[in-house]
Nucleic acid binder design. Structure first.
Length: 124
DNA sequence: CACGTGACCCCGA
DNA sequence: CTCGGGGCCACGT
């Protein structure tokens, strides 16, 4: 059975295409596998989700998440420099991220960086 | 349709 | 170590 025109229009209004949703789902699935007390970089997640070179996409996918209610551990994803990516768009969610990580025992150096050698998730 | 923007990243200077 | 440029691509205007 197919959707009629009105239905299609309705769907495309709010949502990302099916293909896009599938991509985001793959990203969330990878993020869910990062264990407590470990972190992964945006680029690392992209690569694992078969999206090598498209690290920005991971940022977008996580941006869609509601930080308060999501079951995806979005806070375990940081940038390749070992820092939390700060942005006004996040409305404080970035600072929230740091506290969540600290609750998991992850330490920040005086400049706000995480030692990736120590905390990076080794997925292989 | 064309730009501008950005929870990114790598590389070279 | 920091900066800038190029690449990437979904989204809003």
């Amino acid at each position: 059975m197919g959707m009629d025109k009105a239905e299609k229009t309705e769907k495309s209004k709010k949502a990302i295409s099916a293909a896009q949703q599938n991509t985001y789902d793959r990203i969330y699935e990878m993020v869910r596998q990062i264990p407590i007390g470990k972190v992964a970089t945006y680029g690392q997640i992209a690569e694992l989700a078969n999206l090598a070179g498209k690290a920005r996409l991971v940022g977008y996918a996580l941006y869609q998440i509601d930080p308060q209610t999501s079951d995806v551990p979005w806070h375990r994803v940081i940038n390749a420099k070992g820092e939390i990516s700060y942005s006004p768009l996040r409305r404080g969610g970035d600072y929230f991220q740091r506290s969540l990580l600290e609750q998991e025992g992850i330490e920040f150096d005086p400049v706000g960086k995480i030692n990736l050698r120590q905390y990076r998730w080794q997925s292989h």
